[in-house]
Design a protein around this nucleic acid. Structure first.
Lengths: 110, 110
DNA sequence: ATATAATACATAAGTTTCTTATGCATAAGA
DNA sequence: TCTTATGCATAAGAAACTTATGTATTATAT
């Protein structure tokens, strides 16, 4: 999803976080949003995104709703109740990770 | 290397960073140091660590020196010149990642 | 004395998560 | 009319782990 290996593991959290802010989004929209929000730093590939969305749905964290716009399919995803709860946990974990690594790299500021 | 998937990809950078501060370290010492520095948050498994060290050595970023202490083997690793240079890059990448994710999770503070 | 934990290395099988390479289809722009 | 953008999908392979072993010495606890 990017040139750096560091993003490995954070895709699910990124998706969930976006869906707390946007109610419903479709796959392509997510890729564009992430690119915009990170100023091009983070590029989500389709090969990573779509399987991730399917998995989150299978886990009961997302619901799907198919719409046809301009004769093109869109699969809108939104958080389930469980998904909303789980997102809180994932964001906490991410915050912890960032804090830990921040302190590790820059101990003086801790 | 931890309960969170987020650490995936950061092990090499962690090793390199430690070796900029300690001149030479052996595997077991690294696991203990990381545990201490992160207050138990990050636990490096041996199954991840030793192959990582071997790979960094194969890439020419680390040099090895074997010593026998108390009748036990220790393989001391230290940064090569190339390793020292590469560490700077890896730490920059890590800093970028942290910055990007920080901004993503907490846009208000950006 | 003796079992367990700590120290110290190593590898192999399996899992997760991604990249890269495809494939299909419609719409817009050069 | 060719390429790019939009929109979905999957399959093969790579990378980075976890989990489970294995060997060996030393220290600690019972």
């Amino acid at each position: 999803m990017s040139n750096s290996k560091l993003y490995k593991g954070s895709l699910n959290t990124i998706i969930l976080k976006l869906l707390t802010e946007n109610d419903k989004m479709y796959g392509y929209e997510i890729t564009q949003k992430v690119k915009a929000l990170t100023k091009g730093e983070l590029h989500i590939t389709e090969g990573a995104l779509y399987p991730a969305l399917h998995k989150l749905e299978a886990e009961g964290l997302l619901d799907v709703e198919i719409q046809k716009v301009d004769n093109r399919l869109r699969k809108y995803y939104k958080l389930t109740d469980q998904g909303a709860k789980e997102t809180v946990n994932r964001l906490d974990e991410l915050a912890d990770y960032i804090k830990t690594m921040q302190a590790f790299v820059n101990p003086k500021l801790a």
